[in-house]
């Protein structure tokens, strides 16, 4: 039995759940991404050390930024759910977590691909990359929990608590890994932000943000429809033969 405010009774829905509006938004996001990527690749000069490989930064860094934004959304939505008990926040958190996990995975893969030719190794325990890996595993755990729990209220309460604690840990993990690295005097990483790249990074960052929002809202819509269908099934079962 649920005490949470179920979707069907929740009048105040989030915006951008209208299908056509959302699809147009998606088109804009993709166009923005293509434009920023092309602009970045063509207009910025090759890096002194890395040559054109540096251009991977235009995907890697925005991915990383947006992965963290996604988990910020998870944290806020989880907090809202624990506070108000409205199902829509749970669904938003879950959608953001799925998309965020995807972007985190992408960040890690690109970081590794970039690292191999640059430093000769597939992984360097760099603080940012390592924190991202821990974040990735934290949210894989979050998704695993959701898949192992069948009752919807239990799943929502538990994920909200786990999501919140996981997000709380992010800065602490980052700090620990940074100290750990300086303690062992590992080589410092080459800077990823020469001034001539900043604009490219920012435009791509925004384009990927648009894409992130699109993915999350699309996933959220699907989750809403799934949940409304589940409610109808539950109600029919209660009404009985």
């Amino acid at each position: 039995m649920s005490h949470a405010v179920p979707l069907e009774r929740d009048r105040a829905s989030l915006p951008a759940t209208n299908g056509r509006w959302l699809d147009w938004f998606g088109v804009i996001a993709v166009v923005a991404l293509i434009a920023s990527q092309v602009n970045g690749v063509l207009t910025s000069p090759p890096d002194r050390d890395m040559g054109h490989l540096q251009k991977i930064m235009y995907v890697h860094v925005p991915s990383a930024w947006n992965a963290f934004i996604a988990f910020f959304v998870v944290a806020i939505a989880s907090l809202l759910y624990l506070w108000k008990g409205q199902e829509k926040h749970d669904l938003l958190a879950a959608s953001a977590a799925e998309v965020g996990t995807l972007f985190t995975g992408l960040t890690l893969a690109l970081g590794s691909i970039w690292g191999r030719p640059t430093w000769g190794v597939w992984w360097t325990w760099d603080p940012r990359l390592t924190s991202t890996a821990v974040l990735f595993l934290t949210f894989v755990g979050y998704l695993a929990l959701r898949s192992f729990v069948d009752d919807s209220e239990r799943r929502a309460q538990w994920s909200a608590a786990v999501g919140l604690l996981g997000a709380l840990n992010v800065p602490i993990v980052y700090m620990s890994v940074k100290w750990w690295r300086t303690l062992h005097q590992m080589q410092s990483n080459p800077s990823t932000v020469d001034p001539e790249y900043v604009i490219g990074l920012r435009t791509n960052g925004i384009a990927v943000l648009l894409l992130l929002i699109y993915f999350i809202m699309k996933r959220y819509r699907a989750a809403r429809m799934e949940r409304l269908a589940e409610h109808l099934v539950e109600r029919a079962a209660l009404e009985g033969p």
Binding site: V134, L137, T138, V140, G141, Y142, A144, L145, V162, L165, G166, N169, I172, V173, M175, S176, V177
Partner: peptide, 9 residues
């Protein structure tokens, strides 16, 4: 799976 990532620090 849930606990160990939290214990990194």
């Amino acid at each position: 799976l849930l606990l160990f990532p939290m214990l990194v620090p």
